[in-house]
Design a protein around this nucleic acid. Sequence first.
DNA 1: CTGAAAGCGCTTACAG
DNA 2: CTGAAAGCGCTTACAG
Lengths: 360, 360
Amino acid sequence: MSEEHASTSRKTRGRTDGQVRPGWRPTLADVAAAAGVTGSVVSRVLNDDPTLSARPETRERVLQAARKLGYSPNALARGLRQARTMTMGVVLPNLAYAVNAEIIRGAERRALAEGFVVLIADAAEFGPTGAAYQKLVLERRVDGLIVASAIRGESGADYAQSLSLPVVYVNRRGQAGGVSVSVDDEQGVALAVDHLVEVGHVHLAQIGGPGDVDTARRRRRGFEARLREHGLVRRGGWILEAEMTEAGGFEAMQKLLGARRRPTAIVASSFAIAVGAMSAIVRAGLAIPGDMSVVGFHDAPIAEFLIPPLTTVRMPLAEMAEKAVIMLERLIAGERADDIVVSTPKPQLIKRASTAPPPS
Amino acid sequence: MSEEHASTSRKTRGRTDGQVRPGWRPTLADVAAAAGVTGSVVSRVLNDDPTLSARPETRERVLQAARKLGYSPNALARGLRQARTMTMGVVLPNLAYAVNAEIIRGAERRALAEGFVVLIADAAEFGPTGAAYQKLVLERRVDGLIVASAIRGESGADYAQSLSLPVVYVNRRGQAGGVSVSVDDEQGVALAVDHLVEVGHVHLAQIGGPGDVDTARRRRRGFEARLREHGLVRRGGWILEAEMTEAGGFEAMQKLLGARRRPTAIVASSFAIAVGAMSAIVRAGLAIPGDMSVVGFHDAPIAEFLIPPLTTVRMPLAEMAEKAVIMLERLIAGERADDIVVSTPKPQLIKRASTAPPPS
DNA sequence: CTGAAAGCGCTTACAG
DNA sequence: CTGAAAGCGCTTACAG
C-alpha cells in the first residue's frame, strides 16, 4: 500500500492546479520539478549551503516553489542520511510524579529552540533490557540522552554511554561519572539550616531521601556539615531516610513524633517529603510553625498556596534542564564538556510561613 | 565525516573477533553477511514474514547472527521505508504544570506497550506556525497526535487534522469535533454537589475554569443543572470563572469572600483552583471545613496530604490517556473510531476532610 | 553555476 | 527456498 501511495505521489509531481489531496505532502523532488532544477540544488538552497553559488534567480525560483508547495523536509529521510536524528531522549523517574514538570518543560523548550525534538521515557523502562531503552537507544531514535533526577541503581544510561551515546544528567550525577548539571545541594540545605538557626532553632531533624540516591546523600552530608559548623548536636534518630514521596515523609515524620525527644524543626530533602511531614505534624495535633517548623526542597508552584505556605529551597530546575540540553548538544557535536556543572542561579531559600521561632 | 564513518562501518562487516568499536552498531547487511544470506531473508525472518518459507536452519542462522551481533533495526530507515514512524506526538498545555503527569505517564506507558514512542510538545508551540508543529507534523515525525487537557482557542491540532493526520483528544473535545476521550464532567460535578447537599449545604458556589475551555464549560453546566435538580438557588455572583491555577482559585475565592453573602461550600473545577481557594479561605481567618467546605476536581497524589486532606472528584486520567493511545493506533491503522468516548471508570468522589456539614 | 550518481538502512514485490 | 533490485526522501562529494 505504501508502494501505491508512493507512485501516486510521483504522478502528482507535475500538477500545477494548486489542488492538493489531503494528507499528501510534497517532497524535494516535487519542489525541484516545480522550480525546474534538480534536487541537489533545492537541497543546497534550502539548507543555505555556503559552497553553493547559485544564480539569484535560481535561488528565488527554488524558494518560491518550496513556499508555494508548503514544503518541509522529511525528518526521517534527513536523519537517515545524516546519521543525526535531531532528537534528544529525556529519561525521567516515575512520570506520574509532578516534580519533573519543570525539568520537562525546560528541556523541551530549549531543545526546540536548538532544533531538537524530545522523546520521553520512563526510567522504569530504561533498564538495559527495557523497552524504552530498546526503542530510543538501540533503534537509534535519539542523538543523546538527558537523564533527570534521582534514579536509583544502575540504568540504561550507563549502557548508553558504553555505546558512546552522549548522556547528560540533570539534578543527579551519573554512577560512573559523566556530564551532569546539578545544584549545589550542600549549599541548599545549608541555607535551610542557617535560616532555622537564625530564628532560634537548635533541635533540627532531617528527613532525607534514600541513601542510594545521590542528591539525597549530598543533602544529608550538607545537613550534617552545617549542623557541625553551627556547633549543634546531631542526634542519631533525627536523621531519617524516606522515600521521596508524601507517604515517605508522612511515615518518617510519625517516627520522629513518636520519639522520646522531638525536634522543633524539620529539614526535608524534597518537596513531597515536606508535604507529607506537614500532614503528619498537623494530624498529630501540632501547629506549623507554632510547634514545629518545616523547610522543603524544590519550590513547586503549589508551595506558596499550602497551609501554611511552605518555606523551601528553590532549585532552578528549568534552567538546569536547559543547560543540560546545551551541553548535550555540544557532546553530540563531538565537543568535550565539563563533567560537573553546578547550576547558576544558585539555590535560594524562599521564606514563607512554615518556619518561625521555636516554641518557648 | 558521516561518509567516512559509513565506509568504516562497511569494512567492519567481516570481522569475527567479537571486537566492537564503541558506538558502532551492526546493520541488516552485517547480519546477512554473518549468516551467509541476503538482506531480504534477514528482514523477513526477523519480522516473522508469514509469506516466507525459509529452511529452519537458515532461520536459525539468521537469528543467531542477529543475537550475536546485538542487532536492532534502525528506526529511521524502517520508518522511511514504511512511511510509519511508530511515534505519537503528545501535546500538552503548559508543560510546567503538574496536572498532566498522569496523562503523560499513561500515554507513554501504553504507547510503549504498543510499540510506539512518545514525542512531547508544549501546546504553546503548537500553533500552525509554531516550531513544535513544524517539527512534529510538517516534518513528519509522528504518525498521529494526542492532544491533552484544556487548551484554549485554535491549535495546530486542527491543522493536523486537515493534513489528515490522526488526532485524539484527551480530557477535552476538539473544536471541530474529532475523536476524544473524556470523563463525564457533568456527572463529576454532580457527585460533588450531591455530597455537599447530603451533608447539609444549601449555599453552594462554583469556581470554574475559563469559558473558552470546554471541560470548564461542561463542569459549569453540570453544576447549574444539579443545583436545579436539588431545587437550590443559583446565585449570580456565586459562579465564577478563573484561570485553572492556584492563583486563579485564590483570587476568585477572595472575590467570593468579599461578597455580601457568602456560600458555605465551594465546588472547584480543577485541583489547582481548589488549592488556591483553600489558601484564600484560611488566610481570611476561616476554617476548612468548619466554616467552609471545598471540593476539588482531579485527585492529585498530593491531595490526601493537604491540610485538610481534599475531598475531590477523581478522574481516571492515566486510563483515559491509555485509551486515547489505543484509539489513535486504530486511526493510524486506517480504522474508524467513535467520536466521543466517555471514560470508564467513571468519575468518583473521594471524600476527605475538606468537606463537612455547614456551620450552624 | 548546475546536474548525475551514490548511498543512508531498511522492506517488499518480483524472479528464479 | 533464496536472491537481485528498486525505492522511501533526503544529502553530498564529484563532474562538467
